[in-house]
Design a protein around this nucleic acid. Structure first.
Lengths: 338, 338
DNA sequence: ACCATTTATGCAAGATCCTTTCGAAAGTAT
DNA sequence: ATACTTTCGAAAGGATCTTGCATAAATGGT
């Protein structure tokens, strides 16, 4: 049982370093060399670590054995199921994308047909990379609407067919690994923190500007879902100006829309007091600087100097966030010691 | 180092049980009896555990030695510094109140004078219980206004004298233990979860109805302060009806005030999606069922079936929350194993 | 080409800590 | 008073981590 702790600590250090020497690794973990070696043997047995050829360095002394994390030991799949299309990313354990797939989806098709299209896309994505289902260690899916803890779409106004659909359960039948289902704005927030505009920021609100405007929230670096998975839906209050945002834009233009949205965004900023707000979603993809406009209209309504910045991941943020969610699940499973 | 883990695990089990037998304790921790005994010796050396007389039970066999957690090994002090009065609770490590103290405060006095009055109250509270400063393991203070992470009052509109005061640093000079400073609504939320209306609820919004209305937020059982300590201040937005609540009540009555407040409370419910909302603060102490009125006006504006209930701790919630915060700090310090 | 130097390896001895085991002790029931 | 039950205390045994040291494999100078 102490071995487990050591193995987990060694794994963590191994992932942090590139291709460390055994001695380097032992120093980083804080254990003795023989103990670290024992942990590495165990990790190698689980396929997570591997010895690599010594570097051809000009350094003095006997060449050190080097080890590396086997990122190809398993794969994570992230799926965005948007209104009118699906986007998939397949990555290794280091988050390196090995395959991507994009496919159109009929918004008004029955839920079963939409699911069938997603399943076909998954097959294509796996086949393109030559990865089998058994190599998948976790799958996450993002979708509009309120997702309850069991992965059922509790509420969804943009895709009426979708409401009440047991997405988590249905997708679970295709895979033999953990399946996670999450709201799209939540995943976008996760993605922007991972490799987008909110890198290294722990408290983030992601504003997803679409036909209606929702939000995803990260607190202390962790997703905040709320008791019923409905966190961030201040847009439900008509006075806050987050409803029918797309329609408003067509009539009045971007700046007026931003002014109308400002109270809604400010309400979230005041409620959460995040370090930054990331603005993304369909309405930001068709040109115009919505983040800049909000950066003018929102701060006067707030107390704290919250930064407001545009998304850096565009229409890939939800699928990337799904990948990150799956990877997080894999990592907690790997690091667990009971 | 494994000993530390064992000692921490044993301490946790000892606190959970009442006066357990050595065998019971070993079973609960999952360690062998000799190991558990060794951990207990270490805990006894630190003053945290103690052997007690065997029970006079009619049970068969040799009487078992019993141990108990020494709650009197240290004490926690919680201080509410409200606008016009200060309230202190001194408790042992189990949270049992051993001394309480209440004293009036001049709202318009200079900050230094207010601090001096608090210091005098602390002296009186400690003297009444016969506890020395060295026995204090943590102190927490609650105050209106936005408190920054260093314990400075960043913003406070109800006590203008207070703004900019380095409360944490000033109080630190009186004590030789960790000092925590926190917003009053945040502490009230903590208290209601500890021994009030939100027992065992992990996601709570506490609405503090006063001259203005603020809120404290618990997410996953932990306090959510926000990046600048200003979380929960949606009342800043005029459209949400949380400003000048006390004045509105005088003019229009409780029910109309509740109707006016409803959008503000709903905004927080929609933002956080908490399991329940606890309603407290000065406006709830003078009669009238504000929580009931809000329970009629807020849910129609929301998505989730969030419960709305009145505070059970009345005007003691802030000071009790301060005690709980101090105890939490003590516990994390005790359980830390590096 | 050979030897000193440097650095890492691999094995063995030593130390620590946890668990198992077993006889003795201290009560209750008959 | 004797039998039974349960716990205690100490000693033996096992697992794992650390330390220490001789050996191996490279570089660099003579």
């Amino acid at each position: 049982m102490l071995r487990r702790i050591n193995a987990a600590a060694t794994l963590r250090a191994l992932r942090g370093a590139g291709e460390p020497t055994l001695t380097e690794l032992a120093g980083a973990v804080g254990l003795s060399r023989p103990t670290t070696e024992g942990a590495l043997v165990e990790l190698a047995g689980r396929g997570l670590a591997e010895e690599v050829a010594p570097q051809q360095g000009k350094r003095l002394g006997r060449p050190a054995r080097r080890y590396r994390f086997r990122a190809e030991a398993g794969y994570a799949l992230g799926v965005e199921i948007a209104t009118d299309r699906t986007l998939l990313f397949l990555t290794d354990l280091d988050g390196q994308v090995v395959s991507a797939h994009r496919e159109a989806l009929a918004p008004d098709a029955p839920a079963r047909d939409r699911l069938a299209a997603v399943r076909a896309a998954v097959r294509a994505c796996l086949a393109a990379a030559g990865i089998g289902r058994k190599q998948l260690w976790a799958v996450a899916a993002g979708t509009p609407g309120v997702v309850d803890p069991e992965g059922t779409i509790a509420y969804c106004n943009v895709v009426p067919e979708w409401q009440g659909f047991e997405l988590g359960r249905e997708m679970g039948r295709s895979f033999n690994c953990p399946i996670l289902v999450e709201n799209d704005a939540n995943l976008a927030a996760v993605a922007e923190r991972w490799r987008g505009a909110a890198r290294d920021v722990d408290d983030v609100v992601y504003v997803l500007a679409g036909s209606h405007t929702g939000a995803g929230v990260l607190i202390g670096g962790r997703l905040h879902r709320g008791r019923w998975g409905a966190a961030g839906e201040v847009g439900v209050l008509p006075v806050l100006g987050l409803r029918d945002t797309a329609a408003v834009r067509e009539r009045t233009g971007l700046n007026a829309m931003a002014a109308r949205m400002a109270p809604g965004v400010a309400a979230m900023v005041l409620a959460f007091d995040p370090e930054m707000v990331v603005v993304g979603g369909p309405l930001t993809l068709t040109g115009g600087d919505l983040a800049g406009a909000l950066a003018r209209h929102v701060p006067p309504l707030c107390l704290s100097p919250t930064r407001i910045a545009p998304s850096e991941l565009g229409d890939e943020s939800v699928a990337l966030g799904a990948v990150r969610l799956a990877l997080d699940r894999i990592e907690t499973d790997l690091m667990r010691v009971d």
